[in-house]
Amino acid sequence: MLSKAVQKYCVDTLCIFAVFLFTTNVLAHGGATIENDRCVFRSQGYSIHFTAYQPSFSRTKELCRVVNSLSETIIVLDFVDEALRKLPVDLILKKQKDDQLYADYMLVDERIYPAGTMQLPMKKIEQGSYRLYVNIQELAHQHEVAENVHQIAGFFEFTVTDGAKEKDQSFLARSTWLFYLLALGIFIYLMALKYRS
């Protein structure tokens, strides 16, 4: 039976660990409102939300900066700003080449999206770094965004990795978190021993 001091020490340490564990949930994608979502980017002063789905790989999981496989991918853009529903929008998806420059990969012609959402399905996608540019054709003298916002064309950068290769990784490579947990457990045990002695 551990002494009271050792018990108290273990409880305190577990509390610190719990703070790290549970506090990160607050930072999760779903916990933030869309305005503060890390998957939102701005183009010409308008806010747009980026989501990628890979139905056959991760089903309904919403992907953002990292897309985990080369399977069928559906990119969905949601217009946070109401004004975008009335403006023609075109897309350019660029892929990073070997020389670090980005080249056109896919183009979507200019269109108006009154429902405020648009999707870009891709049967196959290659591994690499991408930038999605959204060009908004504004009408003359018509801008509903605050005047101090820079009206530059924006892009959203995301990376596609080969999930199949990650699945081929050994259990040890995929489960590094287990080792951190084990290390913490050993640390607590050793500190408890020290207090007991």
Binding site: Y9, D12, I16, V19, V26, G31, E35
Partner: peptide, 27 residues
């Protein structure tokens, strides 16, 4: 050691806890 642990715990709670971005109904 107890005082140090408590201080560390308090510091962690103060710094790691993030502002909750509440917008009422959307959350």
């Amino acid at each position: 050691a107890n005082v140090i642990k408590k201080l560390v715990l308090s510091f962690v709670l103060l710094t790691i806890s993030t502002v909750l971005y509440a917008h009422g109904e959307r959350n």
